[in-house]
Structure formats: C-alpha cells, structure tokens
Nucleic acid binder design. Structure first.
Lengths: 211, 211
DNA sequence: CGCGAAGCGTTCGATAGCGCACAGACGCCC
DNA sequence: GGGCGTCTGTGCGCTATCGAACGCTTCGCG
C-alpha cells in the first residue's frame, strides 16, 4: 500500500484542506502534526481533533464522502504519506483488513468528538490547556514544541489572554516553561494532575480499540 | 432485512444503553425519539446526538465495535425496529448498499458531533434551546411534545434555571407555549430566526448526504 | 378533599471568561 | 545597533452562566 503513497512535506500553519472543500487525498502523518477544527459562525472555531502518526487525515473519504466539514491545519511541520482519493478507495475495497482498521479508527475519532464536546463545555481553560499539551506531546514525541498563545487560543476556543493566564499558572507551578512560542514540558505527572480526566479517557479509548 | 428485525416499544426515559455497556442490538426508530448523551465527570452530561426515524441507534456496531461511549435515552416514547448485533453484522457484510448507506449516516453523525462541540461552546442558551426544539420537532412530526425544563437542562448541559429563563423569553415572544412539561411550538419561522445557524447547517448536511 | 410531589419562576451573590486596550520584552532584519 | 514586528503580561468593566435557595402553582393520588 505504501507503494501507492508519496511522501510530502508540510510546513507549519499549512492548510491541508478547508471546510467544505473537496478531498483529493488522504494523509498518513509520519512526523507532521495536524489539527482538525470545526468552523463556527464564519470564524475558524474550535479544535475537535488532533492527528499524528497514530491516525489519518481525510476520514470522510473512508466513508465514501469527498467533502469535509473540517479544516486541517498543520500544527507542527513534518512529513506525511499521501494517497490519492481514488487509489485509496480502491485499496479500501480490496483490503478488508485495512477497512476494519479504519473502522476502528473512525470509532476512536467519534468518541473523541463526543468527549471534546463535553470537555469544551465543562472544563476550565487551565485543565484544557494541560490536556492539550499532553496530547500534543504524545504525538510529537518531544517535550519541546513551538506554539504561540495566540494559536492555542484559537484551538481551545478562548481568548489569547485566557491562554496566557492559564500558561502563567502552569509555569508558576513549575509544570512548563515557555518563551515566545517555545514551550517545554517540565513535569508530565504534574500536568496530568492538572489536566481534566478527558486526557486519560481518550488514551484509554485509543489503547482499547487500536492499541 | 426487516425480516430479521423485531418491533419493540419504548417508554419515555427508558435507557437503551449506558456508556461503556455492550451493544446487543441496533435500533431503527420508527416513532421513538432517542437522545445520545456523553458522560462527563461522572454525571450524565451533554446531548451530542438526536435520533429519530431518519437514523439508527448503535452506530458503533456499524464500525465493528460493541462498546458504546454514549448513553441512549428515550426522549419520546414510541417504537423501533430492533436487530441483534450478529445478524446486523451479517447483513452489513452481504449488502454493500446497506453498508454504503450506513457510511453516509456515520459521516452525518460525525459532522453533527463536531458542530455540537462548537455550538455548545459558543452559542447562548436561548439559541441552543430554539435549535433543540426545531430538531426535535422535525423528528417528532408534531408541534406538541412533553419535555420538562429539567430534562432540557440536562440535554443542553445548563442549569434548569437557564432553560426556564430562555423558555420564558421564547414564550413571551410568542414562539412557543408550555405548561408543566407540555411544549407547543407556535411559530417555527420565529424559532428559526432565534436559533443559531447550526440548525440550518445540520439540515443541509443531512439533505446533501442522505436526502 | 386534602396533601405531597412535580414543575416552574425568581432572586442573590459569585465566577469564568469576554472585549478592549495598552505596555513591556524579546528577536530579527536592515 | 536601531527599529519594528511578534509575543507575552496586565488591567478594567461587562456578561452569561453558575450554585443555592425559596415560593408558587398545578396535578395526581389516597
């Protein structure tokens, strides 16, 4: 299957697709990190998914739909394996194992979507920020990343100031250190304690279904 | 396929399944109305889906997963066609047309999940209540329904008082009338004007993909 | 017919997050 | 090495919603 893929490089804040656009490819990230955001009232909105090398970008194609409702934004530069929509559909029909694997991934994503909705509604910014940092680190496999408060704000669906406040708090507690967009995670267990339970739930779901 | 189904009746506030439970059946509502809610921090949480005769309850089984993360709660009594998990999987494998149809339905549900997350985050209670009433009426095909403020509050993820305030406002505007759980919709266009755009977006998605 | 429960309306103080505005601080580029 | 843009920190008034509490009305049931 890899034979039908081509490796592509993505730079940060690259947009793989806009909401409403036609999907021409699916992407299997190898080192790139992609955020999926739902638009709301015209603006970019709210992150509802985070995809690294554990997942795939372009899930609607797995369901036979070529239009995506989400925006896919490169959050951390890197590479992915890209496959055209047509060969992808072809593979899917001739490889039941692949199809079953993708079904499981879809389930995980649906579960995460539901979880996100609740988390966004009920949990405080600081807990959500901690969760986000943990999830990102899991996929980045590095304890350093480059993310501005501004970007975090748009992902979490809050004001930049809200992120700054939460980040100051986390930094004062010695859990992270940051400066001008460079964030370093210093204390993972500490972050887990601050993060909402959604983090653990998410991991558990993934482990059970795809682990 | 109907031959493999049996008709079952559900009473209001019946629970088809709890989060984490094993799915033994799928249900195709005929007259029943089912709310899907995601649990959060132990409590019941937040509605993330509404299923009437346009849809199906038990979508994880369509993806080969027998454990559901959601609670399915009968919101309005009625009947559904029920099929065992095993025959359902069997049908799915031998009827590509059914499989493709379900894929499309899954896409609609995923889109709704993402939309819900944003709506819950950004929109005011009154707009969300109006949207909820419209969506429910679409599936109930009646302009009268029996729903208490308390129940609405748990679906929308707000306090009962918040629902009361919004409901008072809608009633004062002449859009609805209610008393002790009996809600009547008086002015649909008026409600649409008050509801957030999510209502239209949802309908549009459904129409495009399954209409 | 009376009583209790269910459903609804209102109030009060508290709080998380908003919108806006402005100021410092660091780094890159000319 | 001076200037400018990016990133971060802080302050102020405002609003939607929260949490808790209390009272009123209506209905059903004994």
């Amino acid at each position: 299957m890899v034979a039908r893929c081509e490796e592509v490089e993505h730079v940060a804040s690259d947009v793989l697709f806009e909401p409403g656009s036609r999907l021409r490819h699916v992407h299997f990230p190898t080192t790139v990190l992609v955020s999926l955001a739902t638009p709301i009232d015209g603006s970019t909105g709210l992150e509802v998914g985070l995809v690294g090398d554990e997942g795939m970008v372009g899930t609607p194609l797995a369901l036979g739909i070529a239009i995506t409702p989400l925006q896919a934004l490169v959050q951390r530069a890197g590479a992915s394996l890209r496959m055209g929509a047509v060969p992808f559909r072809h593979e899917l029909q001739h490889r039941p194992a692949l199809s079953r694997l993708l079904d499981r991934y879809l389930f995980v994503r649906m579960t995460q979507l539901a979880q996100s909705a609740g988390c966004t509604r009920y949990h405080l910014v600081e807990a959500r920020l901690a969760r986000w940092l943990l999830m990102t680190q899991d996929r980045a496999r590095s304890n350093a990343m480059h993310i501005t408060h501004e970007f975090l704000a748009s992902m979490l669906g809050v004001r930049r100031v809200g992120v700054t406040k939460a980040a100051v708090s986390l930094q004062k507690a010695g859990l992270i250190r940051y400066s001008r967009g460079d964030i370093v995670i210093l204390d993972r267990p500490g972050l887990r304690a601050v993060a909402c339970a959604c983090y653990g739930t998410d991991r558990e779901t993934y482990r059970r279904v795809l682990g």
